[in-house]
Design a binder for these strands. Structure first.
Lengths: 204, 204
DNA sequence: ATTTACATACATACAAGGATGTATGTATAG
DNA sequence: CTATACATACATCCTTGTATGTATGTAAAT
């Protein structure tokens, strides 16, 4: 039972990613051996080494599988021209929190990235991805803030980049706390409240 | 050259903690073997196993060595009765950011906890410590918020706990971003700006 | 329509190197 | 003399990477 069709091979790859996500999430990246992952997927390490280079590559693939569609959805929210700049900012910030709560793959990936992996030399490429995506989002967000300033919704005397950085910190920090202390608070409502207060603090 | 005095033994223990902090920070907790740590401290694994039970215990000790004095300093800030409640809140929130920037042991520990370790079963006790300290701080902060509401500085119609949770998220999120992208922004100034805007958004 | 040839998609086997925990040795402070 | 504060030695278990085996899909040649 070898040499399957391309579709079956893709299914195998997804099985491996699913198993890796579950094990990484449960017991951490370092503590999950490739043998365990393969076994959890009902396969052997040979399958892993066929589809991926090593554990780092596996994690990167996991991240891409979730992040790519998420990035698209994020951009779609950004295209909502019906809303004014400030409403768009608020919507985008809260959307991340909602995703973490409702979308299990996203929640698992964020759990892995924030609590179950070590950003060391081995995962340098993963960290690079992370930083680049973050930088893109930050640039977009700073631009939105600038537009909100132009529209008279935020104080134009402020630094739009700093405002965007603070907003990112707020959202990611809430995600971090919610993930490490699950069920401690309602992330969606707290994020809505916090973000609107934060933005209100920058009104002219 | 064995059987040293108690002071010398304590110094040995500190050497081990110093070496562990450095290695954990540089290459992560999981990637740092006890042999490496002992070697970096100019000792052997025997010394580690004499002073600590295992790697998890070592990390817990590391955390306690930094967190205990930090907790005290934090409480001292809380005792500043000269300031009004809102100023105290602002001061405490910003103090963390300042610490991370100026106090190297604190920065290293936060780097380890946020980026270089996996909160899995093995570090369950460390995570427990973390959560308990966080819960204490949160309770204190919520109380301060309540006082600020009583003093008419914040909107009493709001939920003081939620405000405190949001503040924690903001501060920790900024720390996280600053640690993962070092030098990307000035943490002290951004934190000051963000926190004051956040709090301003809750004014009556 | 077979056969041939090759690439694909894994499974299995092998070698080497740690890492951990523990048991034991040992010199000295108290 | 005894407990202390380590160093050393040992056994066990994993883990990774790679090399090799193998069965099948697929396309081209005949």
């Amino acid at each position: 039972m070898v040499r399957k069709t391309k579709e079956e091979a893709q299914a195998t790859r997804n099985q491996l990613l699913d198993a890796a996500a579950r094990l990484f999430c449960e017991q951490g990246v370092a503590s999950s051996s490739l043998h365990e992952i393969a076994e959890a997927a009902g396969l052997t390490r040979g399958a892993i080494y066929w589809h991926f280079e090593n554990k780092g590559d596996l994690l990167t693939a996991l991240w891409e599988r979730v992040a790519l569609p998420m990035q698209q959805a994020f951009d779609e929210v950004a295209q909502q021209q019906a809303m004014d700049p400030l409403a768009r900012i608020q919507r985008k910030a809260c959307w991340v929190a909602e995703c973490i709560e409702t979308n299990e793959p996203v929640r698992m990936l964020m759990t892995i990235l924030m609590l179950r992996c070590e950003f060391t030399q081995e995962l340098e490429s993963t960290r690079g991805h992370f930083l680049r995506v973050r930088e893109d989002c930050l640039t977009q967000m700073a631009e939105e803030v600038r537009l909100a300033m132009q529209a008279g919704q935020l104080d134009p005397a402020q630094d739009n980049e700093k405002i965007a950085v603070g907003l990112f910190g707020l959202v990611d920090g809430l995600c971090f706390h919610w993930l490490i202390a699950p069920g401690r608070f309602q992330i969606a409502s707290v994020t809505r409240l916090s973000v609107s207060a934060y933005l209100a603090g920058f009104k002219p």
